[in-house]
């Protein structure tokens, strides 16, 4: 699975990082960073990544279809 980020929406709440720290982190400007740069997320991390996507209160993250 791959991730799409809407940077304009990201407000740095950090729930994604909490849910899936191997996939998401916040930089010093409180902007979300995808560790896989929009590329394929390893299968073992997919469930955590989906939980992170679901946890974003401002819907800044989406699974790419």
């Amino acid at each position: 699975m791959r991730i799409d980020i809407d940077e304009a929406r990201c407000e740095g709440h950090g729930l994604c990082e909490e849910a899936a720290p191997e996939v998401f982190s916040l930089d010093d400007d409180a902007m979300v960073v995808d560790a896989f740069g929009g590329g394929e997320v390893p299968d073992g991390l997919a469930a955590a990544a989906r939980a992170a996507i679901a946890s974003c209160p401002v819907a800044a993250l989406r699974e790419r279809t």
Binding site: G12, H13, G14, E17, E18, L26, D27, D29, A30, M31
Partner: peptide
């Protein structure tokens, strides 16, 4: 020893 922290127009990661 209970703190309140407020960010107004200040981008800071919430964990920070």
């Amino acid at each position: 020893d209970v703190a309140t922290v407020v960010a107004v127009d200040h981008r800071i990661p919430v964990p920070r």
